[in-house]
């Protein structure tokens, strides 16, 4: 049987990684400067997500312009976050169109909204709204983590005050081995969790585990996912700094 081995006796995974290696991460910020206040693109292995952030701005929705706007936002003295995600039909191997109100996508949007309502310093932007749009172009496992990382980067690019980056990573348990940052094949084969931390701290912003796993297995998975998150923070931070440097060099008076 030519079925590929998830984890070979030599300690190699399907794509040749070791258990504790994350996939190649490529990210960029300020990619769509004309259409948004902040934008980012992130590729984690073959998962690719674009994020656009518009705001903070006058709340929209309801009437035209500012007047008839989102009443919730008007009364609230915190910022309103709205998250919309589009999963492209061509993002998976078998072409599948997801409707706009797909439950999984809706749930993901809500999760992201809750995470970032905590991470963004919303009290500084009363009576305003931040619109976050996500476009999943290609999925190879870890869609939620890539989306969270993309939103983080785009919010930083938009100059919105946040306590720290929110970085997310997955970890799975294969037999008794922890595997970090799963791809699609691995995700289908083992229980896994998605974790998001606030920057390089041990503060957990999200932990999502949808499958059954022994309680003794949980801790090593969490530990691995957390170190993965911290690694991602460094990659994203490096990109932001690189971008910042080039920007300063050009705009200096």
């Amino acid at each position: 049987m030519s079925r590929p081995e998830i984890y070979s006796p030599e300690g190699l995974r399907i794509d040749g990684r070791r258990w504790n290696e994350v996939r190649h991460v490529r990210c960029a910020i300020n990619t769509h400067q004309a259409s948004s206040d902040g934008s980012s693109i992130i590729e984690q292995g073959n998962t690719k997500v674009i994020c656009n952030v518009v705001g903070p701005g006058e709340p929209t929705g309801g009437g035209v312009g500012g007047s008839g706007g989102n009443q919730r936002a008007k009364d609230d003295n915190r910022v309103i976050l709205t998250v919309k995600a589009v999963v492209a039909p061509f993002s998976t191997i078998d072409r599948r169109k997801r409707s706009g109100n797909d439950n999984r996508v809706q749930e993901m949007c809500l999760t992201i909204q809750h995470i970032f309502e905590e991470a963004v310093m919303g009290h500084l932007q009363p009576r305003s709204q931040i619109e976050i749009s996500l476009y999943v172009l290609s999925q190879d496992g870890g869609m939620l983590q890539a989306c969270i990382n993309a939103v983080s980067l785009a919010l930083v690019d938009a100059g919105i005050p946040m306590y720290d980056y929110v970085c997310a990573c997955t970890a799975g348990m294969y037999d008794k081995e922890v595997l970090l940052d799963l791809n699609r094949l691995e995700e289908n084969d083992m229980p896994f969790l998605t974790m998001a931390t606030l920057g390089a701290t041990r503060k957990v912003a999200l932990m999502q585990l949808e499958t059954r796993v022994g309680i003794d297995r949980l801790e090593p998975m969490m530990a691995a996912a957390m170190s993965g998150c911290h690694h991602l923070r460094d990659v994203m931070d490096a990109e932001v700094r690189k971008h910042g440097k080039s920007r300063l060099a050009r705009t200096g008076v």
């Binding site: 206040d37 902040g38 705001g55 930083v156 100059g159 920007r247």
Partner: peptide
């Protein structure tokens, strides 16, 4: 935010690189 540090006397602030 991501930006540069600005100092006026004893007041420290960070000026964002981009923003509204």
């Amino acid at each position: 935010v991501a930006g540069t540090i600005t100092r006026v006397n004893k007041l420290l602030s960070v000026t964002p690189l981009r923003g509204r």
